Amino acid sequence: MANQNPKNLPGLNTRAIHHGKSFASETGTVMPPIFPSSTFMHGNPEGFDYTRSGNPNFRILESLLSSIEVCKFSSVFASGVSAITAIASTLKSGDLVLCEENLYGCTVRLFEKVFEKFGIRTQWVDFTTPEALNTIKTIKPAMVWLESPTNPLLKIIDIKEVCEVASSGGIPVVVDNTFSTPIIQRPLELGATLSLTSTTKYINGHSDALGGAICTHDKLWQERLCFAQKALGLQPSPFDCWLITRGIKTLPLRLERQVANAAAIADELAKHPRVNWIRYPFRSDHPQQAIAKKQMQSGGGIITARVNGDAKDTYLFCKALKHFTMAESLGGIESLVCHPATMTHASVDSEMKKHLGIDENLVRFSIGCEDLSDLIDDLNQAFAQTK
Rank of each mutant, 00 (worst) to 15 (best):
M1P: 10
A2S: 11
N8G: 13
G11C: 08
I17Y: 06
S25G: 11
E26F: 08
V30S: 09
S37A: 13
F40Q: 06
H42T: 15
G43V: 02
R52Y: 10
S66Q: 12
S67G: 12
V70G: 00
V70E: 09
S79F: 04
T85W: 01
I87G: 06
S89T: 04
T90Q: 11
L91N: 02
S93C: 07
S93D: 11
L98F: 09
C99M: 07
T107I: 05
V108S: 10
V108L: 08
F115R: 13
K117D: 15
T135N: 07
T135F: 03
K137A: 08
T138A: 14
T138K: 11
A142E: 07
I156A: 07
D158A: 14
I159S: 01
I159L: 00
S167L: 00
G170K: 03
V174N: 01
V175E: 08
T181C: 09
P182S: 14
I184K: 06
L188Y: 02
L194N: 04
L196W: 06
T199I: 04
T200M: 03
C215L: 03
D218A: 05
R224Q: 15
K230S: 15
L234H: 05
Q235F: 15
F239P: 02
R246C: 05
G247R: 00
K249D: 00
E256C: 07
N261H: 04
I265D: 09
I265V: 11
D267Y: 03
A270C: 08
I278C: 08
R283H: 04
D285T: 12
Q289D: 10
Q289S: 12
G309S: 07
D313H: 11
Y315P: 00
K319R: 05
L321W: 02
L321K: 00
S329I: 05
I333V: 14
E334D: 14
E334R: 13
H339R: 09
P340K: 03
A341V: 13
T342Y: 07
T344A: 14
A346D: 14
D349F: 00
K353F: 06
K353P: 04
E360G: 00
N361Q: 13
N361P: 06
V363T: 01
S366M: 02
C369I: 11
D371P: 07
L372N: 06
F383N: 05
Q385N: 12
K387F: 01
